[in-house]
Design a protein around this nucleic acid. Structure first.
Lengths: 228, 228
DNA sequence: CTGCAATATTAGGACGTCCTAAATCGGAGC
DNA sequence: GCTCCGATTTAGGACGTCCTAATATTGCAG
């Protein structure tokens, strides 16, 4: 009844809404109008209006004043966009010399323009990677995604050594700063100190020590279990 | 006064109109409303309306009932799209395993989504080619283009041997047929016969003979000068 | 339990793009 | 030189997306 219609060519706006709602709650918890509006840089009334249209099309469910949830069909469409976005990012870094701070903006436009065929060609050229340059998992073509358990660096106890898995940041400037500290997915860091106020964490990475603030501490998502 | 404004982010539709008008008359002869409407698969009134808007923005000049011509600014914007389109086609064929009949549709969408940076990265990866997979010249980044003199195969006299330079066709089905005859840019063919009625031309290519009709005879653009 | 602040929705409007139907123009043939 | 057909433009309207201003709801604080 709904399986095919995902590919009935959604507009660019619709694709953005679905991806935003998915990103606000991958688990399916309702997302609020204002969260969506903030993420998409739109006014709340615009979101209310679009949400109404999308729920009529069966892509999400809207309980007025209570938020929206993707339907199964909406979730499929959203994951399709996430897959495109992350594969495009990976491709640009691998084959076209992009740095990780520049790929987001480019992918944000390309994800609406590439065909399924092109996406799969890129995936093949890349050897079907599981993660993008920021460590975010790439959903498979059939819509499954494996979110691996991560802990924000802010929550790692002093003395522990962890591996950075994901860097949850899109702003180019911030990404360049993070890279300048030697922090990127796959790097191991040791928490050597924590200040009780402001939750400042001192980490050792590649022989250097850096102080990490609250925001960056949540951007850096780590795997705690020492074993690879 | 107008040099910068080309990059003031034109909409997808506007980009399509400019490219269409350029393609209808690279030399700058006026293009008619109905020609444009036909090429873009729109109704003539839609074209009239858009043309009015574009001429107010200084991208073209419209003399009512007499057709439209691109301004210098409009021509620059159009050539930018042509460059993107043809480089994307070349890239898809070279690096992502596309065949020449599949690239047009993909490039038609991507040309609106890629950044200037990405276009230049692709050009670099390709070694700054002069022509796309159909033999069409790729405008340079500064907007110059070298159209080389071509003669339709239909106009080649019997007995002459020529090299195919360009294949003026977008339809995948037709392109596959053309390829199946061994006809593509760079191939040499000899005209062995011509029927006076219907202008059917018999050519020899790769040891085989094929009869070429009027339409295909104009699709195949050849270099007459025997040299190289 | 009531009232207020925060959040969400409705009302009303703009803009870009497209359409069909109706009017108008321009040139070819008489 | 007039007439008429085809090309073009004007008129009027739909749709998707967005906005601001005004209204409604929710839930918390007192």
């Amino acid at each position: 009844m709904s399986a095919v219609s995902v590919s009935e060519s959604l507009t660019r706006s619709v694709e953005d809404y679905l991806k935003a709602i998915y990103q606000l709650s991958p688990e399916g918890r309702p997302a609020s109008t204002s969260e969506i509006a903030h993420l998409l840089a739109l006014s709340p009334p615009s979101v209310t209006g679009m949400v109404k249209r999308l729920s009529e099309h069966g892509l999400l469910e809207h309980v007025p004043y209570r938020g929206v949830q993707l339907t199964e069909e909406g979730r499929r469409a959203a994951l399709r966009m996430v897959r495109r976005h992350r594969l495009i990012e990976a491709y640009l870094v691998e084959f076209l010399g992009y740095s990780w701070d520049a790929v987001h903006e480019e992918a944000e436009r390309l994800e609406h323009a590439v065909s399924d065929v092109l996406v799969e060609r890129m995936a093949t050229a890349l050897g079907h990677p599981n993660v993008d340059p920021h460590g975010d998992p790439i959903p498979s073509a059939d819509g499954s995604i494996q979110e691996l358990a991560c802990t924000p660096l802010s929550d790692i106890p002093v003395g522990e050594t962890v591996e950075i898995h994901r860097v949850h940041e899109n702003q180019p400037e911030n990404l360049r700063y993070i890279a300048s500290l030697g922090l990127r997915p796959g790097v191991r860091v040791r928490v050597v100190d924590r200040q009780p106020i402001d939750n400042l964490v001192t980490v050792e990475v590649g022989g250097e020590q850096h102080v990490i603030g609250r925001e960056l501490g949540h951007v850096l998502q780590c795997a705690r279990s020492g074993g690879r």
